[in-house]
Amino acid sequence: MEPSRVQMITRDVLAVLVVAIFMFPIAWWALSSVKPYSAIFDRSGPVYTGFTPTPDNYRVTLLGVSRVDIGMEQGGEAAGVIKGGASSYDSRQSLLDSAIIAVGSTALTLLLATLAAYCLSRMQFSGQQSFLFWILSQRFMPPIAIVIPVVFMFRDLGLRDTYTGLILVHSLINLPLAVLLLKSFFDDVPREVDEAALIDGATRWQTFRRVVVPMVKGGIAATAVLCFIFSWTEFLLSLFLTTSIRTVPVKISTFVTSTATEWGYITALGTSAIIPSFIFILLVQRHLVRGLTLGSLKE
């Protein structure tokens, strides 16, 4: 039964509409980031057009341009462009910090999770489901409860306020989901593939490394993207485990002070923070949709 033309068009319209609704907050956010101050806080109603877009919020947060210079160019406060605040708004170091931590923790997570997922997919042992449940249960603890002991632990290990420390903690958060995801990818590869390689004289490690892993490359990429996103967006642990290192979400939170909320810089850095993850998502979109079956269709 082929759908009629009307049905197809209705579906298209509906699909675009739904996606548009979900896109609206981000679009509004991005729009706000190029608005002058007065357009963000217009009480008469939402402002979509009729303002001169300004790149100043991005120049301050991403290029480290001093807001004094921007004030000069624009003819000073009469043009309403001078923004204030106490801390430095130059966020380049934060983007770098976040990138190092997200990449590091993604790599560590993938390393540990791939090994475990392959094993859990291929080997039968008693307590396997319990082991998986135990891994999943690592996600049950509220982050605030992890903060207290980990602060003391990191103090003794010298890991407080280090990249290594945050990489470890973010990996800890990501491991449960990564193992579940990767196991589902390995489950998709028929066992016969392994058996053939083993019969050919390959060791288990060679089979894993040279045969199976290359077959689930796409799935690993999809998992990597999710790990990257979750590390890139994590807030609470990054806040309390660091002082000098400022990941992007923590940096943004410092733009909200008791004396002013710097919406211009918040929206600019917020928009910039979305872009890298979105590019990765586009790259692995196919695998992502394929991958999140979590293996549950299999009995």
């Binding site: 001093s66 001078i82 204030g84």
Partner: peptide, 29 residues
């Protein structure tokens, strides 16, 4: 905004990153 603008400007000036002419113009702003 203004406070920090002023403070920023002074800072630039005292750190010799700004000429006196610039400084005075900015403060006038």
């Amino acid at each position: 905004d203004k406070k920090t603008f002023i403070a920023d400007t002074c800072n630039d000036f005292t750190a010799n990153r700004m000429t006196k002419r610039d400084f005075m113009r900015k403060m006038a702003l």
